[in-house]
Design a protein around this nucleic acid. Sequence first.
DNA 1: GTCGATGCAAAGGCTTTGCACAGCC
DNA 2: GGCTGTGCAAAGCCTTTGCATCGAC
Lengths: 159, 159
Amino acid sequence: MPVSPPSAAGVAATSDGLRTTLHDRGQRLTPQRQRVLQLFERIGEGSHLSAEEVHQRLLRSEERVSLATVYRTLRLLSSMGLLQELELPEGGRRFELASDAHRDHHHLVCVRCGHTEEFESTAVLQAGALAAGSHGFRLLECVLNVRALCPRCSAAEQV
Amino acid sequence: MPVSPPSAAGVAATSDGLRTTLHDRGQRLTPQRQRVLQLFERIGEGSHLSAEEVHQRLLRSEERVSLATVYRTLRLLSSMGLLQELELPEGGRRFELASDAHRDHHHLVCVRCGHTEEFESTAVLQAGALAAGSHGFRLLECVLNVRALCPRCSAAEQV
DNA sequence: GTCGATGCAAAGGCTTTGCACAGCC
DNA sequence: GGCTGTGCAAAGCCTTTGCATCGAC
């Protein structure tokens, strides 16, 4: 079974929970860290942002955070399990809100235009758990990336 | 060293096949391109190399290819379907020999030490095909990444 | 001989880091 | 008040690109 960081997301997402979680690590709750996390909460679970996009969006909402701090914060929140990094090489490193519902999500990516659909599949999770178990690994996360052509690009490819 | 199976990769992997495939695209067979592809054939299917590693290995075997050309060649061979890029964010971009046996392979990665096991699962492939079909996508490839802790690192984490 | 490919070095993204200052606890 | 975090700018990867030359066909 997956090692459930005991609903780290749900707990720490509140300012108090985040503060506590940080203090346990000898770290501090700063406005910048709150802004980054709140941005991800605001846009919802399915959205994938790059560091640059986080920076831009915070600028637009007049919550300036330097790009360096955005990078530092993304790394921090990921290491705390509040955010998770996507595994799509197309388009660079991206982050999304980690939640139990999205811990084991799957992506259907168009390799031509980059359009992404998300889906879930218990069959995949079972297969992942099985593989981990049979090698003695402790499962953390299970991500299926289906590389494909979306309907529009599929039509355009017909040569 | 393993003999290539009769597949798309297997055909083009021979010098003649590669030459023909290149000529169809108005491109040329050069010693550099042969060296890169032969390196991947030499090390076998399961091995993942970064551009820098390809460059270093070719240097060691006295088959000098400039790093820029290594990058260009990796991109070319990938676009031809002879190599494929891995999707593991840990450790940067890596390439491996593409073959039918490995087209839809899955990785079990230890997030702590980087140790990787490969496995296959028809259940995963079916789930991927199902997801692609239900969204009208044309499936290209299906890669499951299971992030986990290997037995050794799992034990070490208990501390 | 042509035109694509190579090597080199320089430029380009993206990400991290050193340092002085700010501000959380 | 001490010590962590921030902002800025500089430095560091990794990768791509411009250009003169080379060489496959």
